[in-house]
Amino acid sequence: MQIFVKTLTGKTITLEVEPSDTIENVKAKIQDKEGIPPDQQRLIFNGKQLEDGRTLSDYNIQKDSTLHLVLR
């Protein structure tokens, strides 16, 4: 499925993911596309910070959902 990740600069990254993917996996995909190390990434969905060990389906993230990427 496709999800979107919006950065603070207003750029939107499109990712191909599975609901069973962990947040860690998603961060690795963002690193592949953008070169941002996962330990600098914080992903936010519906105002909640997403934890590495959880999956997209844990957070009820579905296709065409938009996550927000904050760098630390």
Rank of each mutant, 00 (worst) to 15 (best):
M1H: 14
M1R: 08
M1N: 08
Q2E: 11
Q2W: 14
Q2L: 11
Q2K: 05
I3A: 01
I3D: 00
I3G: 00
F4Y: 15
F4A: 13
V5N: 00
V5A: 06
K6Q: 06
K6E: 09
T7I: 03
T7A: 15
T9M: 15
T9Y: 02
T9G: 07
T9I: 14
T9L: 15
K11I: 10
K11Y: 09
T12Q: 12
T12A: 12
I13K: 02
I13G: 02
I13W: 10
I13D: 01
I13R: 04
T14V: 13
T14G: 14
L15Y: 04
L15E: 01
L15P: 00
E16R: 08
E16P: 11
V17D: 01
V17Q: 10
E18D: 14
E18Q: 11
E18G: 03
P19Q: 14
P19M: 13
S20D: 12
S20F: 12
S20Q: 06
D21W: 02
D21E: 15
D21P: 01
T22A: 12
T22H: 15
T22V: 12
E24M: 10
N25V: 13
N25G: 09
N25T: 11
V26R: 00
V26W: 01
V26G: 00
V26A: 07
V26D: 00
V26N: 00
K27Q: 10
K27S: 02
K27R: 07
K27L: 07
A28R: 07
A28T: 12
K29E: 09
K29F: 11
I30P: 00
I30M: 05
Q31V: 07
Q31L: 05
Q31T: 10
Q31I: 07
Q31A: 14
D32P: 02
D32R: 05
D32Q: 11
D32I: 07
D32A: 14
D32G: 11
K33T: 05
K33F: 14
K33G: 08
K33D: 15
E34M: 12
E34Q: 07
G35A: 11
G35W: 07
I36R: 03
I36V: 12
P37W: 06
P37N: 15
P37R: 14
P37K: 15
P38E: 05
D39I: 15
D39A: 13
Q40D: 08
Q40L: 05
Q41D: 01
Q41N: 07
Q41E: 02
Q41K: 02
Q41L: 14
Q41F: 06
Q41A: 08
L43G: 00
L43F: 12
F45L: 03
F45T: 08
N46M: 09
G47P: 01
G47W: 09
G47V: 06
K48Q: 09
K48F: 12
K48I: 15
Q49A: 09
Q49T: 05
Q49K: 05
Q49G: 10
L50R: 00
L50A: 03
E51R: 05
E51Q: 06
E51Y: 06
E51G: 04
D52G: 13
D52Q: 12
D52H: 10
D52T: 13
D52A: 05
D52L: 09
D52R: 06
G53S: 06
G53E: 10
G53M: 10
R54T: 11
R54A: 05
R54Q: 12
T55W: 10
L56Q: 00
L56D: 00
L56K: 00
L56E: 00
S57R: 13
S57T: 07
S57N: 04
Y59S: 04
Y59K: 01
N60A: 06
N60L: 10
N60P: 05
I61M: 10
Q62P: 05
Q62K: 06
Q62S: 09
K63P: 12
K63N: 13
D64P: 02
S65Y: 10
T66W: 03
T66Q: 05
T66S: 05
T66D: 04
L67A: 01
L67K: 01
L67N: 01
H68R: 02
H68T: 02
H68Y: 07
L69S: 01
L69M: 04
V70N: 08
V70L: 04
L71T: 13
L71K: 15
L71P: 03
